[in-house]
Simulated assay, not measured.
Amino acid sequence: MKIKRFSVFLIVLLFLVGSLTIPAPTLAKKAAFKDVNKNHYAYDSIQWAYDVELVGGFPDGTFRPNQPITEQQFGQILVKFFDLEPTSNKLTKYTTKALASDPFYNTLAAYKVPLNGYFDNNIRGQAIKRGVVAQALTHVLDGQATLKDSIQFLLDHHITSGQYPQYENTDLIKFFGSSNQLTRAQVVTLFHNLQRKSFFYISEDALNSFENNDALPLNTRANAARNILASSLRTGKDWSPISNTKDSWNGDYSYFYRYGRGETDSIGRYVTITGSTKTEFYVTYDAFDGEDEGFVQGYATILSPTKAMMTETVEGNRCVIEFQKQSSTALKTIEHDCKNMRDAGTNYSGVLKK
């Protein structure tokens, strides 16, 4: 079952009043772009897409119909065409620079539309493949589907066609040209076909994801969306709290120094870090300075890729310790104020090794 969203089409009926009324002459409409003349196969589609503000051109007055369309350009058109509801949630990306496409990707993730560029600005700017377009459109129109089923859906409804007739009855994916890019003209023609056939529906799968009754984080839904794509079309990586292993603070670090012959004539620090994410980690900190010793646990906030700070223990006691990542195997700790660790306070500043 599909649920139709509200689309408003204003039809103005003009009636001639009186048999002697002479209609005013109409002027031919000027082409929207100087590089798309009336003989271009996609002229009507491009004109339509421009008129309904689905697409724009370039500052020099061109449309560049033969230029490959990027994933973020396709995503923007998809959001506008289906009038997808915006979401207040925001994706966390590996490439943190803000882009104009961010709100569109937030919306697409909420509907779990299969795309690659949710977490990577560079992927967003790459040309999108026909197979990705097929799976994205079919997900919105008919629900989650494999690449083959997505292609078959578009072919069955005459929304688009294949590119290699020699494979029509032997290899659907090759017949469709799944790994090929689409031009800007081809994409607006595809959406014009949807408009002509009144495909303004949104699938239950997409709507259920947007309603999010399971309260899934937006990044989790974006991961799920990426994994709908056929493996041959997938690029980039899923979101995880740690972007890659070198960013993790996790590990056991220690420092030990004996300055005398007595049992307590030594200084040591033993630190264990677990649960490292992009924003924090959990630390167990064991210290002894001669007869003075202490033990604390708490969460440290990551301030930069190489610096973190703990300000209180899990019991809520003040304990300020700075952590500086020296390398993948070395960690410097600076004890600013942690009197709760031991009676005499702490003042250690030094490097611990894994």
Rank of each mutant, 00 (worst) to 15 (best):
Gln163His: 11
Ile267Val: 06
Tyr50His: 15
Ile77Lys: 11
Ile242Lys: 08
Glu71Cys: 01
Gly316Ala: 01
Thr301Asp: 01
Asn116Val: 02
Phe15Val: 00
His157Ser: 13
Arg261Val: 11
Leu115Lys: 07
Glu71Lys: 04
Ser240Thr: 13
Thr170Tyr: 02
Gly260Leu: 08
Ser150Gly: 06
Gln73Ile: 05
Glu263Cys: 14
Asp171Thr: 07
Asn89Lys: 15
Thr279Gln: 05
Gln47Lys: 13
Lys97Val: 01
Asn180Tyr: 08
Phe63Met: 02
Thr272Gln: 04
Tyr50Trp: 11
Phe323Pro: 00
Phe323Gly: 02
Lys90Gln: 05
Lys80Gln: 03
Thr170His: 06
Lys30Pro: 12
Phe58His: 12
Ile123Ala: 13
Thr92Ser: 14
Gly143Cys: 12
Lys112Asn: 15
Gln135Phe: 00
Ile46Gly: 09
Tyr50Thr: 15
Thr279Ser: 13
Ile77Thr: 00
Leu182Cys: 03
Ala300Phe: 06
Tyr94Ser: 03
Phe15Tyr: 07
Gln195Ile: 06
Asp51Glu: 09
Gln195Ser: 14
Thr107Ile: 05
Phe323Tyr: 00
Gly294Ile: 06
Met309Trp: 10
Arg258Thr: 02
Thr170Glu: 04
Ser243Gly: 11
Pro241Phe: 01
Gln326Arg: 05
His192Tyr: 09
Ile273Met: 00
Phe58Glu: 04
Lys148Leu: 12
Lys80Pro: 01
Pro65His: 09
Leu141Lys: 06
Phe33Ile: 08
Pro103Ser: 07
Ser243Gln: 15
Phe9His: 11
Gly162Gln: 00
Gln73Pro: 00
Arg269Glu: 04
Gly75Gln: 01
Gln126Arg: 08
Ser150Gln: 00
Gly298Arg: 05
Gln166His: 13
Gly177Trp: 01
Asp343Ile: 14
Ser150Ile: 02
Gly262Glu: 09
Ser276Pro: 03
Glu204Asp: 15
Ala215Val: 13
Lys353Asn: 07
Ala134Glu: 02
Ala222Gly: 08
Asp171Met: 10
Leu216Thr: 06
Asn223Ser: 07
Ser88Phe: 10
Thr245Ile: 11
Ser179Gly: 13
Lys339Phe: 14
Asn66His: 12
Gln152Gly: 14
Glu280Trp: 01
Leu207Gly: 13
Gly125Tyr: 04
Asn223Lys: 07
Ala109Ser: 13
Thr306Ile: 03
Asp51His: 08
Phe176Cys: 11
Lys325Leu: 01
Val52Pro: 13
Gly294Asp: 00
Val187Asn: 03
Leu218Thr: 03
Leu233Glu: 03
Leu16Met: 14
Tyr111His: 00
Val320Asp: 09
Thr138Ile: 03
Ala110Trp: 01
Ala127Ile: 07
Asn66Val: 09
Gln326Thr: 04
Leu54Ile: 02
Gln324Phe: 02
Thr277His: 06
Ala225His: 11
Val12Asp: 05
Phe63Ser: 08
Gly117Arg: 09
Leu216Arg: 14
Val52Gln: 14
Pro114Asn: 14
Thr284Trp: 07
Gly162Trp: 08
Val296Pro: 08
Ile159Gln: 10
Asp289Phe: 14
